[in-house]
Each structure stands twice: as C-alpha cells, then as structure tokens.
Design a protein around this nucleic acid. Sequence first.
DNA 1: GAAGCTTCTGGAATCGATTACATCGATGTG
DNA 2: CACATCGATGTAATCGATTCCAGAAGCTTC
Lengths: 345, 345
Amino acid sequence: MASIKDVAAEAGVSVATVSRVLNEHPSVSADARTRVLAAVEALGYRPNAVARSLRTDQTHTLGLVISDVLNPYFTELARSVEEEARALGYSVIIGNADERPDLQDHHVRTLLDRRIDGLLVSPTDGGSPLMLDAARAGTPMVFVDRWIPGVDVPVVRADGREAVRDLVAHLHRLGHRRLAIIAGPAATTTGSERVEAFREAMAEYGIPLPDAYTGQGDFQAESGRRVTEGFLDLPEPPEVVFAADNLMALGALDAIRARGLRVPDDIALAAFDDIPWFVHTDPPITAIAQPTGELGRAAVRALVDRIEGRPPASVTFAARLVVRRSCGEPAPQEPSPSPVQRSTS
Amino acid sequence: MASIKDVAAEAGVSVATVSRVLNEHPSVSADARTRVLAAVEALGYRPNAVARSLRTDQTHTLGLVISDVLNPYFTELARSVEEEARALGYSVIIGNADERPDLQDHHVRTLLDRRIDGLLVSPTDGGSPLMLDAARAGTPMVFVDRWIPGVDVPVVRADGREAVRDLVAHLHRLGHRRLAIIAGPAATTTGSERVEAFREAMAEYGIPLPDAYTGQGDFQAESGRRVTEGFLDLPEPPEVVFAADNLMALGALDAIRARGLRVPDDIALAAFDDIPWFVHTDPPITAIAQPTGELGRAAVRALVDRIEGRPPASVTFAARLVVRRSCGEPAPQEPSPSPVQRSTS
DNA sequence: GAAGCTTCTGGAATCGATTACATCGATGTG
DNA sequence: CACATCGATGTAATCGATTCCAGAAGCTTC
C-alpha cells in the first residue's frame, strides 16, 4: 500500500509538502497542491490512520461498552451513538460485555490499549479497578443508561421514576394488588433503581412489595423465565409481573406460555424498555419507553465536549408509560406506525 | 501514560529488553525479566497498540460491515463474529451500513484506513469500486450471508432454497394458491435468491408468481408496510405474504393490523430469518431459520485462515423451516425454550 | 542596492513500539 | 591456550505520518 513517501516521490516534492496538502495547511503553492493531488489520485493513496494516530496522539475514535448487544434497547443505543459520532467526525468501536464484568474489563482494556479518545460505558457492575483508574487518570468518559455512584463522570440517562409511578397507578386502577417484579442485578443502577421506584410507587397505594414477589434476574431472557416460574409456583402467585427489561419480559412470556396460562386473563405483564415487537406480541405489551436515540446522541455530545476541552454536562431524560393490553384494559388506539418508525437520517 | 521508555528507565534496562520480555522472547535473563515485570506493574504500563501496529503492520483487528444493526439477524451475527474473533485473538470493529451503499463505502474506507487485518462483509449492493479494488489488491476478505457474484472472495452463507421449497409445500398443503412475496433489493444476493427460490418452488406446484404479487422492499420495516398495503389494495389480494426478512415482516404485520385484518384468517404471513420474538407475536410466525451463530463463526475462521496464510474455504449451511401458526395450520408443539436460547459460551 | 518581509519548501526530529545487528563475557572444544 | 559458540544485552534503524525550524526565492521599501 502506497505511503506518503511514494506520493512525495511521484509528485516530486517532500513528504512535508504532501502532509501539508493533505491537512489543508495554507502555505502550499497551487502548483504543488495540484501535483500532490494528482499523485494521490494516481497511486490511490490513503493516509495510514495508525501512523497518524501515533504522531498526533488522537484516534478520532470513541469506545462504547454496552452490556448486551442482543438487547434491542442497546442495539438502538449503539446505532444512535454511531450516528452522532459519525456526524461529529468520530468512529465508534463497540464492546459487548454480555452482562459479564470480566468481558467488560476485557473490552475496556482493549479500547484503552488502542488509545481511543474517549469511552462511553453502560457498566455491568459496580466498576472494576481498571475502569475507575482510567476515569481517575483522566480518560474522557461518560456513563450512559447505567452509571456508577461516587465516580466523577457525567451521566446521560433516563429517569423512569415518574413512568413507573404511572404504571403502578394504571395497575391499581385495573384492580391489581399483588404486583411482582423481576429485578435486574443489584450491582447496576438500573437494576436497583427500577425496584426502588416500583416499591415507592406501590407504597403510595399502601401496597407492600414482599420478598417473594421480588425476583432476582440478570437482564437476560433465561432469568426472566426462571423467576417467573418461581412466581407461578407460589401458593398465591402475583397478578402482575413487571420485568425490568425487555429480554426478561420475553423469558416471562415463555414461562407463562409453557404453563398454558394467558396474558392478561391469568396474569398481567409489563416491561421496562419498549421495543417495536411489543406492538405485535400476544397480547401487545405495556411498557415503559426510553428516548433511546436521544440518550445515545446526548451521550456522544457530552463525551466529545469533554474530549475537545468543553465542559461536559450530565443529562437526564424522562421515560414514559406506553399502555397496551397486557395488563388488562383494552388499549387505547395506538397510532399505527409510531413504534416501528426509525430515524432514517 | 507511561511508555516503554519509562519502563526501561525504571527497570534499568534498554527498551529492547523490555520489548523482549513483553513478547516472551527466549533470551532474557530471569533477573531482567523480573525487574521489567516489576516496573510494568509499578507504572501500570500497557503497550501502545497503535505504535505496535505501525511497526508490525498488524492490528489484530477484523472489520465487519453489516447491512443493518437493528435487524436482530445481523445483531446475532455480529455477536457470534465478535465471540469467535475474540477466541482467536482478534478484535472486531463493526460498521453499520443501514442498507445504504454510501454508508457501506464510508465504513469500508474507514476500516481500510485503520489497516484492519481483514474484512467481513455482507454487501448492501453490487459492490462499490472501493470494495472490489480492496479485494483485488489482496485485502483478506470474506463475504457473509450476502455476496457479490464474480468476485474471488470466499462466501459463508446459508442456502434457503430447500427451506423455501418446504415453505411452499406447507402453504400448498394448507390450500393457499395466491402467494405473494416482499422481496429484498435486487442488488443483494439474498434479495434476488429468495424470490428465485420462491418462484421455482411455486412452479413445481404449477402456481405462477405474477408481478402484482412481487413487491419490492428494501429489508426495512417501512417497505414491508408499504408493499403489504399495495397487496391489500389489489382487487384480488394474495392469501399469503412471504417477507424476505424479519423487519419487513414486522412492517407487514403493522399494515395488516392497521386494516383490522387478522392473521392467518384473513391473510397468512411467513418470513425469512427467525427471531425469538416470532414465538410470541400474534399469531406466532412461521419462519425460515438460519444457523446464524454458525455462520458468524465459520466466517471468522475462514477470514483468519486467509489472514494467517492458510487457504480459506467457502461454506454453505442449510436453513430450515420452522412452522408456527401464521399460515393457518395449528402449530405442532414447539419445544418451549429453543428459540430464545442463546449460546452462553 | 541593501534590508526586511512574505511565501513556499525541505530536512530532520518525533511519536512508541519491534527487531537486525553488534558486542561482550562466559563457556566449551580441540 | 586459542578459537568457536552461545546467551544476554544494548544501539540504532524502521514503520508512516506531523510539525518545528531554517533557508531560498520573490517582493517591498527606503
């Protein structure tokens, strides 16, 4: 592959001049510029990003470490992150932690070794020493969706508290009193916050959340199935199961279906994180929707602000309840195209 | 961030010795080794992958350019690719083309600029000059899922011909005669092949595939909706709609639902590419399943073979029909956990 | 016509690693 | 004892860019 030296030779100038042309430095004669551009064209030359990064100490690359690519929520997040980053002149390298701290560490390490300019993380756990050290050492970093308390890193996330309260109100209005939750890992903020919000909202209606109705999941479908089976085995099973993410809701649906039970007649179901398929499941699932695209874009902007020396800001969006039929009430007319719509930018 | 020089100074040796220790070169004294390792530990030193790549001309990185991350099929593909690559000591950088040739080009260019060791592509179109040039110039490359005819690049894919024949047999047995298809872009192999296979299988039953029953989609949900609306507007609408991918099936479902029609009573639906959610849609959707994980892993192995100087081989897997209720017949008992199962490696 | 300014250009240092080659002391061999 | 061999180490070149610095050429200006 042609290097800058080849271009310089072909154009009859020095490598310094070639570099100047490539970087649009003002003091290059028109003549030299055209000769260089012609040589670039002739040789099909493309600058070596590796060499450039070594010299400039910038990779124009962001790392994004997410907890699970297979989760449509994170997929959409990743897409919007890449989109915004591209618009700002950055590439994105995605690391999929699969909810495993060791894998998360692997990716963080690999990304730091590559000297990415900044890191976007949705932590799987309380934060490994590696990540905390990096943050302390000044690696530009922003938490998105989930965060780690006590670390001085901007957070871009959605607050579901209000929406959870709306959900509990909705359930209460439908007459449900025995509400159960499939929680996420307590080590994640989204894992603990959603239970907290649920418990608090229930308290407002004087409903307790007994331990038996609090199942420990790990944000994966399989755990949703397991926990739901546990609920169904109880002497007095809950009337509603609220899954703290969409994959656990899928698992719950599997478990309910395996018993031959029906939603919402035998048991109601709701989920955190809305996805297009929820419109077409049997029945359509009531969910709490996050402005995922906004989240991703805001996170990138905050990170790039930090990288480029501007003060980054934490941002919190609001989530909102989307009522469908899985909790009992006939759904209101849903504007048909909305949940499938995608930004086509 | 500490460099190899700092480590050398700290350990009281030359950078060459440090490098030797790091690369497990045999001729290093035990004494020097321990001093270097201590210095590495003390400084928290991590080798700069950028500098290393520049010198060795290897990045230990694969590029993966897929057509659409939001499509669960490609998400799963990406996941298995990363998994296998990691096992073989490589990282993966994903580029999402969003079914747009210009974006595909952007990512191919960026990846080549970064001097990735090899490229895995599921082409969105017939192949831009850039990609073809790269292949011709000797960049290790493997096509996965989709490919470009006439280019000397190994292909790892699934052959759906047999499964499509099974599908048509299934539909015929149920009494359906007016079969329509929402095709993918003709520029993609999967776009044209699936229509071809469908047409041929129908021919075996003496059923024609009129133009009015062949809708042109682009593998996105919106096109599935649009095409399906066209079908429903026909004086004699089809009895079955077969969507060439899962997102277009989602769009079709939207369109059917918006008209207040029911599946399969008013119109039957089937899709190419099976996803976990198809078990829980209303009704569960009959689909053709690809061994997606196998595909990803085999593609990585072929690419790494090529990179490391071994002869790479094309591989073709078989797809299989998964019958559910969306075409009319009561579904056979489906082993409950299977479609949600994930490789936990 | 000399001095002082621009404008353009090239030489060379530099980023952080790897690695060919040279060196040096210790050991083995005839 | 002289010489070859071997293990351990350091020096320096190198990868492909960017960029500081110095110098050449062309203009102004007095």
